[in-house]
Amino acid sequence: MTGNGEAVARGEGAAGRRLRISVLRYNPQDPQSRPHLQTFEVEEAPSMTLFVALNDIRDHQEPSLQFDFVCRAGICGSCAMLINGRPGLACRTLTSSLGERITLAPLPFFELIGDLSVNTGKWMRGMSERLEAWIHASGEVDIARLEERMEPELAEQIYELERCIECGCCLAACGTARMREGFVGAVGLNKIARLRLDPRDRRSDADYYDLIGDDNGVFGCMTLLGCQDVCPKNLDLQTQIAYMRRKMLRAAILPAS
């Protein structure tokens, strides 16, 4: 067994390319501003990510360029944007995985703040409020005492769904959401699936039906699977949505149960 990080040490895919990065620029705050593509040339460096490239542009070419990065490690979900037309996390996209010409645009569907920066946070908060997306427990828990038990497998299953980082890629990739702005998207449906799985949330299917049992919820989903195919966390959204669809149908057919 030998160490093989040498690929990194060598600086894979760095053969001195000159990247041409076109950014869709627009500042809605500025009445003079019109949407337009601005192209920047950047010398590619080894292991360069779009995070590095965009900061390079801002530091050395265009200080007014707006974009959002926080963790720059693929965990916080701030930097979703359209990379050559597809939603993805810019911070963990290696430029070596793209061609020399790269087009970046802000995530559609969300309110544009400026250039590549969009207001996903505002939408996510609204969605959480609309879907009452928190644990609805019954009564107080005495935290000095042993915690309620949970099957280890169940905890893992819940975590699996909880891995969503609310980056907004699923909505930007969703034809349904693009046409129907009230749609809660995979992020909302997944969240409800996660809460439903959790025994600490005491709501019944009839309660969940009230939240997602309409055409802005699970029955609005047209199964275009853009969400499934772009999710940076590889969440199995397709299965969760299908599952919720069956459960909600059941709740509709057998309302008493």
């Binding site: 309660d207 009230d210 049992g213 309409d214 055409d215 909600m248 057919i253």
Partner: peptide, 21 residues
């Protein structure tokens, strides 16, 4: 907070989206 506000907004015909789908 434990009781969803949703419970108060139940309406007749709310099951149609499921049936139609």
């Amino acid at each position: 907070l434990a009781v969803g506000a949703a419970l108060t907004k139940r309406r007749s015909g709310r099951f149609w989206p499921a049936r139609l789908d």
